[in-house]
Write a protein that binds this DNA or RNA. Structure first.
Lengths: 131, 131, 131, 131
DNA sequence: GTGGTCTAGACCACA
DNA sequence: GTGGTCTAGACCACA
């Protein structure tokens, strides 16, 4: 488990935690039903306020990615197979992707290089995707 | 020229303008050295606060994408070929891409589908990509 | 006797026990003066903390629904006919009902459908309602 | 606009605000696209912490009931017709309803009286439901 | 021990 | 003016 938080980033710390936790779960660093650190543990580990961790955990729970069992702790939820892909959400991804590609292009990253970047990241994350 | 601004979006309006202006320039809707609308024109056209347009233009100018010539107006800058790719900036793109892929995966978009999405967007934008 | 406890629920486990015990008594699954399992029995049966069962039994006793007889065990109390309906308590029910109806409406459940839902539940529970 | 907050209630204040706001919108006290009080206004009106109001508003926004426009304020969202009723959510309503009916029964409220209570509340809320 | 709620108050971006 | 983020710290219910 390795968090990489940047307090200067535009992305709120709680959201960075959400993103990185999702990534770690995808990579298999946390397994289904495994206990994750308590709010207090993680906040003292990351030297941030417990409320910030709490907000991240609540968001993860809302997304169905973790589950809280009262008085016991917080656990990685079992991942339900996606039934219907939410087209509206995918459209948002598409828009964000477009922005990213435009950015990349201005940096001098051509189409082919961008695809290579995508494949690289897919490989990095995919590690335990089918676990 | 067609802006599509959503005041409800989490993305600030000035940033939406920046993004869409860059996209339009990439697509060739605005050509190099072409005059773009003044802050006043655009703000009254889009019915938004002139300060918001002004902030967008300042950011576009900072990025070297447009140029203001005193007393004449604002123009699309000539695009200099990128000499050295800014690795730090590409790293940011890579991180944003990773977040996007993780999101997509949780929505049920698999690796192959994601690549297709990328190719789709590349095609949409590509108009003048090699210009 | 069949308990259906969900540790993931927002409703505390002790309260789930209280609710389900009351439901079972209403349905006639437990009869008046019948012995119910001891705290130890039930906690080992449900594989939960004895304190949790204990808290549930205390609440049920406070509500006059069960009775503990020293050295003998715990029994379903005889249900006294209600003389005066506690208007303040009914007001709470009314408020909770209002919340529920508002929720249901936002989910797309119309007034008529809600009444049908109520009648359904009344039928399900009704077993011994007039006992 | 009339809030009725009880700090002693088990229901968190932010959730009381959520419930009552939804009820007021249903009743037509707030119309679609109408501005609702700012976080600061409402918090000073109710003499509670702005964070508590903020949490309520964020939850309402997450549910799609209100919309925030950056720098401008918060507005009642247009209510989209429900396409597919979420069966899992309705099941939760059903469970809550069962608990309520069991409670009511112990208070001496019989089946027929309960239905009358439901109809009463439906009438109270329904005021502007078709607006 | 666990997480949830709430207050008080600072600081920031946006329009 | 608007809402969003974060810290610090108190208090509480649950298991």
């Amino acid at each position: 488990m390795q968090f990489n938080l940047d307090p200067r980033s535009q992305i709120p710390i709680w959201e960075q935690i959400v993103n990185q936790m999702k990534e770690m779960i995808m990579k298999g660093i946390f397994l289904e039903n495994e206990k994750i650190p308590s709010v207090r543990e993680l906040s003292s580990l990351l030297i941030i306020n417990p409320n910030t961790v709490s907000k991240a955990y609540q968001e993860l729970e809302r997304q169905g990615i973790i589950e809280t069992i009262r008085g016991r702790g917080t656990f990685v939820a079992e991942r339900a197979p996606v039934e219907n892909i939410d087209k509206q959400q995918v459209e948002k991804i598409r828009e964000a992707l477009k922005r990213l590609i435009v950015e990349a292009s201005y940096l001098g990253v051509e189409a082919q290089q961008f695809i290579e970047l995508v494949e690289e990241v897919l490989k990095e994350i995919g590690g335990n995707a089918d676990a």
